[in-house]
């Protein structure tokens, strides 16, 4: 009996070893699967952005656009993210909201720009959304909710795309993805020499206001105070840095 167990164990272990070895090979790279996914994400993101473009008013406020573009640029350059393409958009909308689409599209509502007290707070929100893009959270979220079928179907526009869009712009990610994005945002801001506490401050502002239609990814989240606290704790751990004064 012992012999059988021993031999069985060896068999299982050797199969496992073969699997572990095969896992080390960059198959998805070799088969171009990573590029394919990025391509699909780009198509889906572009289609979703066109949908917004056709139904919303694009902001013509050059100052707002300049501020958003400048913050994105500073974060991109100081974090060496030049290989990812970002498309920041500002739209005239009374809802305090900002969200990321697949394919690098970042949408900021003018109401959010008016709501923030400092440019650091705006930078915090932007860094958070950029993190969702760099960590590819949007695609993960979409895959989970709609599966591969709807994701590719969404490129055709129409009903499917609208559903996807509502989903992206209105629902919070799960807790782990949100705090992952918060932590990544702190790093982005820190490297860009922007005070990361802006993100915590903005979350506190949002948790205090009871306005309806508030920034969903913060207000629907049960623990925005907790998130603000986690951000402060993380910032405390970082080596002290002199942040630059954002004055765009």
């Amino acid at each position: 009996m012992n012999k059988i167990l021993f031999r069985g164990l060896i068999l299982v272990l050797s199969i496992f070893a073969v699997y572990q070895g095969l896992k080390e090979v960059p198959w998805t790279k070799w088969f171009g699967i990573d590029e394919k996914y990025i391509e699909i994400e780009q198509e889906v993101g572009d289609a979703l952005w066109h949908l917004i473009e056709s139904s919303e008013t694009i902001s013509t406020d050059t100052q707002n656009i300049k501020v958003v573009d400048s913050i994105v640029n500073q974060i991109v350059i100081r974090n060496k993210l030049q290989n990812i393409r970002f498309f920041p958009h500002v739209i005239d909308n009374l809802q305090v909201n900002a969200f990321a689409l697949p394919g690098g599209h970042l949408v900021v509502h003018t109401a959010l720009i008016e709501k923030v007290e400092t440019q650091e707070q705006l930078a915090g929100v932007i860094a958070h959304e950029l993190s969702h893009i760099t960590e590819r959270h949007i695609s993960k979220k979409l895959l989970k909710e709609f599966g591969v079928a709807i994701l590719t179907g969404a490129t055709g526009g129409g009903e499917g795309a609208r559903k996807v869009l509502t989903f992206i712009s209105s629902r919070a990610y799960d807790r782990t993805l949100e705090s992952e994005a918060d932590m990544q945002a702190i790093e982005f801001l820190y490297n860009a020499q922007i005070n990361p506490l802006g993100l915590a401050q903005f979350m506190e502002i949002m948790s205090e206001s009871d306005l309806p239609n508030e920034l969903d990814w913060i207000s629907t989240h049960p623990s925005s105070e907790e998130r603000a606290q986690n951000i402060k704790n993380r910032v405390d751990e970082l080596p002290i840095k002199v942040y630059k004064d954002l004055n765009i």
């Binding site: 896992k23 198959w27 699967i33 996914y37 895959l143 989970k144 599966g147």
Partner: peptide, 14 residues
């Protein structure tokens, strides 16, 4: 394919 729980990964191909 149908549940979209995950993407085609290295683990899966291996």
């Amino acid at each position: 394919m149908f549940r979209g729980e995950e993407a085609v990964s290295n683990e899966y191909i291996a």
